[in-house]
Write a protein that binds this DNA or RNA. Structure first.
Lengths: 167, 167
DNA sequence: TGAAACTTTCAAAAAATATTGAAAGTTAAT
DNA sequence: ATTAACTTTCAATATTTTTTGAAAGTTTCA
């Protein structure tokens, strides 16, 4: 396999994987492109490489910046804006996990807590509802706490310690 | 909050959360409904409660069965088919994690392995590509191995041991 | 075997989501 | 203050995904 083919395969795979980490295709592809680039890229560069429109590029770059994964790079003497992504995979994983926890898991934990706290009127269906949503609440909270613990560790802790632990 | 309101809130929250665990809204809602039900439900029951069509119900029940989360229950003397879901949250988490690993993570790990194995022609861009995709391959493989390790543990191991470890 | 009771399939329709592109907005240099 | 170089916004459009519903299929019982 040649560089060009491998690159295209990587970008498209990473793009379709977007759903797994909760972002859209273009967003994932832009990140993938920056991830393997040896230098910061301009909006033009990205549009050209991925064959997507200016508006699309602009909106998705903003979202990537909101996630904290991509940063603007100002190149002295240049008018254009350039972009780079976090190059360290573990830091990347940490940021993604943290954001998903904040955006998606925490709100759900809150709702599970609320709905599992309804008054027990003694009926079977209410008892079952409380029991099941409580169990879900506890599991979700445990998972979230795990994620956040991992996320707050030092560089390399993730691979080194966890791999030992689980292998 | 009354039972009815809590139930509706739970089902709709769980439904919109579907994306987090990689299934669609109707599928997640059917699972949620079965999860808090005190008895197996028929297709009619589900259609009625969730206000969705027969075809939709049938297709999504099949998918839930493919995932191994929902099972058909034959009630003696009844012509209709009834459905129940796995009621134990940890078993549920285990099944979901295992399926996602198999369906989504493993194929990606394979592609990452392939693309990171291209011939190093000595150019900077090829070197960067190999370095970055290798790092991603390793991380993804580590994560997947963790997930599978957790997934194969005994009942309760997840909550009891991991919580202690991370709290 | 016939027919009632039920489930599955799938083409068409609807809904949700992503993308475009051009106008409006911003910034920096002269 | 003007203009050139660039970015952002957003209504319109395209694409993808989900849902519907009716016809076809299956099963069970008499």
């Amino acid at each position: 396999m040649e560089y060009k083919e491998a690159k295209e395969k990587f970008i498209s795979t990473w793009g379709s994987l977007g759903s797994l980490w909760g972002i859209n295709k273009a967003m994932a592809q832009i990140q993938a492109l920056l991830f393997i680039s040896t230098k910061p890229l301009s909006m033009e560069d990205i549009m050209e490489e991925l064959k997507i429109s200016r508006g699309n590029t602009s909106m998705n770059l903003r979202q990537l910046m909101d996630w904290g994964i991509v940063t603007k790079e100002i190149i002295p003497g240049e008018r254009k804006e350039y972009f780079t992504t976090e190059k360290d995979v573990e830091e990347l994983a940490r940021v993604v996990a943290k954001e998903r926890s904040r955006r998606e898991i925490k709100p759900v934990v809150k709702i599970l807590k609320d709905v599992s706290s309804i008054n027990d009127d003694g009926t079977e269906k209410t008892k079952e509802f409380i029991k099941q949503t409580k169990a879900l609440h506890e599991l979700t909270e445990t998972m979230d706490s795990m994620i956040n613990k991992v996320v707050n560790q030092q560089q390399n802790w993730l691979t080194k310690s966890l791999l030992k632990l689980f292998k």
